[in-house]
Design a protein around this nucleic acid. Structure first.
Lengths: 227, 227
DNA sequence: ATAACGAATCTGGTATACCACATGTCCAGA
DNA sequence: TCTGGACATGTGGTATACCAGATTCGTTAT
């Protein structure tokens, strides 16, 4: 028999670790818009030199989490409402394509899986379990993406999802949205079950655009100035 | 009157310049898959030190143009056919959403503009002018994206477009594709003129998915091994 | 008291030296 | 001739020193 040798996992680079730490830090802390960071201070705190830290920061800058202004500073870049809406448009585009593709591959077992995630919720009481529901939400969208079997689609979508991670929590909580979201999810699952690409895509698109509309019209985010 | 003061162009960073140079280099040269690059040599050629060059390289790595293997080297990362097809799926998703949004804003003048770009072409003779047509092609897709007025959509789409810049040339050239593309473009313009979001989106999607199918089935790329 | 100047300082950008690991080469021993 | 291993070399990763623009704040001249 052949020996199954370990695939060898190459040692992580400090830049990679710094990137993850920084990202977690930015997403978990509720800092103010335009909070200023400092290369040297961050490098010290993380115990690395500026070089790997800079790589991490620039990556975060490309992804839009921070803004680097030469000789000024590094600033956390929370997104104004308008940008969040635009990001949701992109999500709508990607995920409705995912739903369309998913119809080609989805199996009855997949459908059952999707349904079970939501069995514990009821439209009339879901508003009281927003935390659990928000999680089920994320999982649902991820599952649909996986069913598309398109790694590029998955890659782009998850990239975008991070960028508005904070948003999800607040939008779900906002009045009435959870009930609608639950019903919409169930109707998307139905469309997938029927393997109807156009219908699935449309429902997914409308679901996310509905969220966008919700954000546009009413949602308040903690990092925006209260009026 | 007010003086039109210079917008102040902040001095370009070497890293930025290096990024552009490198990207052009990679896209313009028909190098072999897995061609090896070298940080120090590149830095010398560009006349900068390794630091800004590394930033450029890592950015290219994030975008998938190159692959960095620690202590091995930097490798040009041409994409296998399957990946190109997947990228086209993402493009289809983004641009069909753009077409949908464009319907909200498009004016008769916009429609005329779009049409003029293609006036010089005829379905029966377009195969003889593939170079010009390819350019008109790019411009068309860009214009539709602009009409969507969604900067995020534009940003993501142009990001993706670069990644398959080479593909366009070869796919257009491949037999029969130009004629179809021209007809499809014209029908997309019609749908936009009618301001029909669903129809516009569908035609744009089918147009790009058709290209994907074309790539999947027949197209050969110079960097793939001939069989 | 106020405004203008300038030095000290802060900050990201850049250059460079050094490190550790991977690979290639060459020689010694079987 | 073939095998191993030591050493030289190549490579990206990291740390650090220095640069120049931007900012801050105190001093000075009016």
């Amino acid at each position: 028999m052949e020996l199954s040798v370990k695939p060898i996992t190459q040692p992580a680079r400090l830049a990679e670790l710094a990137y993850n730490s920084l990202k977690d830090f930015i997403l978990s802390s509720d800092l103010e818009q335009d909070q200023k960071l400092d290369e040297r201070a961050l490098a010290d705190q993380l115990g690395v030199s500026r070089t790997p830290l800079r790589e991490a920061v620039h990556r975060l800058a490309l992804e839009g989490f921070v803004r680097v202004e030469p000789r000024k500073g590094i600033f956390i870049n929370y997104r104004p409402k308008e940008e969040i809406v635009e990001i949701l448009y992109v999500r709508a585009a990607l995920e409705s394509m995912a739903a369309r593709l998913a119809c080609k591959y989805i199996t009855p077992k997949n459908v059952r899986d999707l349904r079970t995630s939501f069995q514990q919720f009821d439209p009339d009481t879901v508003e009281q379990h927003t935390a659990d529901f928000a999680l089920a939400n994320v999982v649902f969208h991820e599952k649909v993406l996986d069913l598309s079997r398109s790694s590029k689609l998955i890659e782009f979508a998850s990239n975008i999802r991070d960028q508005i991670r904070l948003v999800r929590i607040f939008t779900i909580r906002a009045g009435g949205r959870a009930r609608n979201a639950l019903l919409e999810h169930l109707s998307i699952i139905e469309a997938l079950e029927q393997r109807d690409p156009d219908l699935s895509a449309r429902r997914m698109r409308e679901h996310i655009l509905g969220l966008a509309r919700h954000v546009e019209e009413g949602a308040r985010f903690p990092w925006e100035k209260q009026e």
